[in-house]
Amino acid sequence: MIKLLENETIEIESIDINLWYDDVQALKDISIKLPKNKVTAIIGPSGCGKSTFLRCINRMNDLIKTCRVTGELLCGSTDIYGKDIDVITLRKKIGMVFQKPNPFPMSIYDNIAYGPRIHNNLNKNKLNDLVEESLRSAALWDEVKDKLNKSALSLSGGQQQRLCIARTLAVKPEVILFDEPCSALDPISTTRIEDLIGKLKKDYTIIIVTHNMQQAARASDYTAFFLLGEMIEFGKTKIIFEKPKQKSTEDYITGRFG
């Protein structure tokens, strides 16, 4: 992995992460380095631990009482599971976009302004600028600029998902976690989100969990294959999808199991 990532800056590093739900072990000794300003896809069959691992990165698993984590997870030099970590600040730094678009039941404008109003004390003009900038970055501005006060729920599924991305961008994160962001979207909206991910990596580090193999192949620079809680293979996406090293990776991506 050292040679593989020699020209990359590492944003997230996981060292021997183990995770249990009660006594069921969901992650086993996951050690992986995720490069900055790159898209890393995590693939694997259902129940392989990919979403669990993703949720470790911004401590969403804290919300599950029976969940126990050991090992070390670093974001830059910050120990994500360190004692002094403020989880709210952590989740601002490491944003997340979920499978189903989940806009707040409020206006488009307020959805984006919600985070900045909590985290920063911005005046009206600066807030307006931030809302516009976030919507532009999420490739949604042109479609909603004339109806910012309309309910976010009036948008289509694909637009709602981009709104959620804009909402994540508004708090200026460094890392964005995508948990199957396109599984509830039609092909055109999916393409838009994929294009967007490609553009966002210039400014953010992106980690995406997806069941859609072609999406992983199209959208990511690096791919990690998880199976039964273990990371089986990590490598450049083009290699993983053309000639993976591990047989189980090849069997999974060619549909021989999973």
Binding site: M213, F241, K243, I253
Partner: peptide
């Protein structure tokens, strides 16, 4: 089928 890996090759 969008073949990958050994199938694509």
């Amino acid at each position: 089928q969008q073949p990958l890996a050994r199938d694509l090759r």
